[in-house]
Computed example of a mutant assay.
Amino acid sequence: MIALFDLDGTLTDPKVGITRSIQYALERLHRPVLEADSLTWMIGPPLIDGFTRLLGGPEDAPEAVRLYRERYSEVGLFENEVYPGIPNLLDRLKGQGIRLLVATSKPHVYARRIVEHFGLLPSFAAVYGSELDNRNADKRDLIRHILDLEGFEPRDAIMIGDREHDAIGARANGLTPIGVTWGYGSREELLKAGVARLVDTPAALEAPIRELIGSTPLRAAGA
Rank of each mutant, 00 (worst) to 15 (best):
M159Y: 10
I2M: 10
L29A: 03
S21E: 07
W41D: 14
G119S: 10
L39D: 04
A137T: 07
P177W: 03
G50K: 00
H165F: 15
V180E: 06
S105I: 00
E70R: 10
H117Q: 11
H30N: 15
G183A: 06
N173R: 14
S21M: 11
D13P: 02
Y68R: 01
L142H: 12
R210V: 14
T52D: 04
G76V: 10
D13I: 02
R66S: 09
I18G: 01
A207I: 08
T201S: 13
T40S: 08
P62W: 07
R144Y: 01
L149P: 00
D49E: 14
A196C: 03
I43V: 14
L147V: 09
A172F: 04
L147P: 02
R210S: 09
R92F: 00
P154T: 11
P208W: 08
F118M: 09
W182L: 04
A103D: 01
D13W: 05
R92P: 02
D148L: 09
H145Y: 15
G185N: 09
L90V: 03
R112L: 09
L34W: 12
A170K: 04
I213Y: 00
V16S: 07
I22G: 06
L100V: 13
L149H: 15
G179E: 05
F78S: 05
P202L: 06
I114H: 06
A223K: 11
I98D: 04
K139R: 15
I213C: 14
P107K: 10
L212N: 11
R31M: 13
A111T: 13
S186Q: 03
P202T: 06
F78W: 15
A3D: 09
H30F: 04
G97I: 06
F124R: 04
L93W: 09
E188M: 12
E35F: 01
R187N: 00
Y83V: 09
A196K: 06
P202V: 05
V16R: 12
L4C: 14
L191N: 05
F124N: 08
A223Y: 13
I114G: 08
I213S: 06
L212E: 03
T201W: 01
G17K: 09
R99F: 01
A207K: 15
P107C: 10
V195A: 10
A36W: 09
D148K: 14
K192W: 01
A223C: 02
I18A: 12
T52Y: 04
K139A: 08
L121V: 04
L55K: 02
D8S: 05
T12Y: 06
